[in-house]
Computed example of a mutant assay.
Amino acid sequence: MKANRLYGICHFFGAVALFVAAQISDPIIMFWVMLFNAIVYMPTIALSNVISYVSLEKTGLDTVKDFPPVRVFGTVGFILAMWTISFLKLELSNIQLYVASGASLLLALYSLTLQDCPTSKAKKDKSLVSLLGIDAFVLFKQKNMAIFFLFAMLLGAALQITNTFGNPFLHDFALAPHYKDSLVVKYPAVPS
Rank of each mutant, 00 (worst) to 15 (best):
G14L: 14
I39E: 10
F140P: 02
H171D: 06
P43V: 09
P188E: 09
P43M: 11
L112K: 03
G77M: 01
V64R: 11
A81F: 09
F173E: 08
V54M: 02
L154S: 06
G133K: 01
M82G: 11
T84R: 12
F137K: 03
A176F: 09
G60I: 08
I147F: 03
S55P: 01
A46H: 08
S120T: 15
L92M: 12
I45R: 03
I51V: 05
G133T: 14
S127L: 09
Y7N: 01
P118N: 15
L139E: 15
M153E: 09
L56Y: 10
F36A: 11
K141I: 03
S93V: 07
S104V: 02
L106M: 12
L155N: 10
V40L: 02
D172S: 13
A146Q: 04
F140E: 00
F165D: 13
V50G: 04
M1I: 05
F73W: 10
V129F: 14
V72D: 04
A108R: 09
P43D: 08
Q23C: 00
R5I: 09
K124D: 13
K65E: 06
Y110K: 04
L18R: 15
V33K: 02
M153P: 06
L159C: 06
I161E: 01
Q115H: 12
D181G: 10
K186S: 08
D135Q: 11
F13T: 00
V20M: 02
K186Q: 12
F78C: 01
F67W: 09
